[in-house]
């Protein structure tokens, strides 16, 4: 009982000093504290990002397989040599590039035009945002099933619409090796355009209205305003959109898997489809890892280029 008041008295007396020492203790203990704050994320980062990346690199040099545990026998560069000489590897790479070439220009240009027009419209912006952006948040499974049905040969909505404008529908967009990738590209443009659209809208809204007003007072036409104000000021957004789009296109898997499973034949097989087929269907994890590493190198190279461009732009701005 007597200890209690004594304790309070002592802590009261020591309060200012204690506070100061807590402060400095915090400063000293910050290092440990910081690592404790980093630890949970760091653990997941190592276990499910860095670790797998390193393991993938290692197993690409081994004959790893799903039927045995462990790495399997050492293979040297043979997985890479095999991949780089396999015709279907290069065809998958070509189809990935083809998909990129089909989707990036429309995704950039149409999104830009829609954003410019939407920015000019005073009323009903919410409706255009809804119409163009909503598909972007739908699952790939939903959009694939919707477009698969639209592309039904003969009686689907696409074939019917072709009939209205007098085009005879052939064997079906996705069934013909020549057009299957175009069909996937159309579905993808419809699906992901909203992402670029909102990026451009955000970029447009940062351009001060006074610039346009000043230009209008000086007699610049609408076209001139777009040409000399909007386009140059959206340069940074365009670079960003193009690079993000290229990276996203290189990772394409879902739509192809769900709409054509790489077919007809291997006419739409893409890089990630080849990786999962080699790994999970052929059970050859080592070879699949080698293909993944090659794909990863391409993607990281583009991401690094993006960083360099960003840095250069920032330095120019500063």
């Amino acid at each position: 009982m007597t200890a209690a008041p004594a304790l309070t008295r002592r802590s009261q007396a020591a309060a200012p000093k204690a506070r100061r020492s807590i402060g400095s203790a915090l400063a000293r203990g910050e290092g440990r504290g910081a690592w404790l704050f980093l630890a949970p994320f760091g653990l997941f980062y190592i276990a499910f990002l860095l670790g797998p990346a390193v393991w993938m690199l290692i197993s690409s040099f081994f004959n790893t397989s799903t039927v045995r545990t462990g790495l399997g026998s050492f293979a040297g560069f043979s997985n890479y040599a095999e991949m780089l000489t396999r015709a279907d590897f290069w065809s998958a790479m070509w189809h990935t590039l083809q998909f990129t070439l089909y989707t990036v220009p429309p995704l950039v240009i149409i999104a830009f035009v829609f954003a410019i027009l939407t920015n000019r419209v005073r009323r009903g912006q919410w409706f255009f945002r809804l119409a163009f952006f909503l598909p972007y948040i739908l699952p790939s499974a939903t959009i694939s099933l919707i477009w698969l049905f639209i592309f039904t040969p003969g009686s689907g909505l696409w074939a019917t619409a072709q009939g209205w404008v007098g085009i005879t529908a052939g064997s079906g967009v996705l069934a013909d090796p020549k057009t299957a990738m175009i069909g996937i590209a159309i579905a993808t443009v419809w699906w992901t355009l909203g992402f670029n659209f909102v990026l451009y809208l955000a970029g447009l809204q940062e351009i001060p209205r006074e610039l346009y007003e000043a230009a209008a007072v000086d007699g610049a036409s609408n076209w001139e305003q777009i040409r000399y104000i909007t386009l140059p000021l959206l340069n940074r957004t365009t670079t960003l959109v193009i690079l993000l789009q290229i990276i996203a296109s290189l990772k394409i898997f879902d739509q192809v898997y769900l709409m054509t499973s790489g077919g007809p034949g291997i006419s739409t097989q893409v890089a990630l489809g080849l990786v999962t087929n080699t790994g999970f269907t052929d059970n050859r994890l080592g070879a699949a890892s080698a293909a993944s590493v090659l794909l990863l190198i391409v993607i990281v190279a583009i991401a690094v280029i993006r960083q360099l461009i960003e840095r250069a732009a920032e330095r120019k701005a500063a």
């Binding site: 990002l49 670790g51 990346a53 393991w55 993938m56 999962t276 990863l296």
Partner: peptide
């Protein structure tokens, strides 16, 4: 962290499956 942003997790599907 910056490195992690650049790594596309889809490409890690094989080792993540093994793990």
């Amino acid at each position: 962290i910056l490195f992690g942003i650049m790594i596309p997790t889809q490409v890690l599907i094989i080792p993540i499956f093994q793990e």
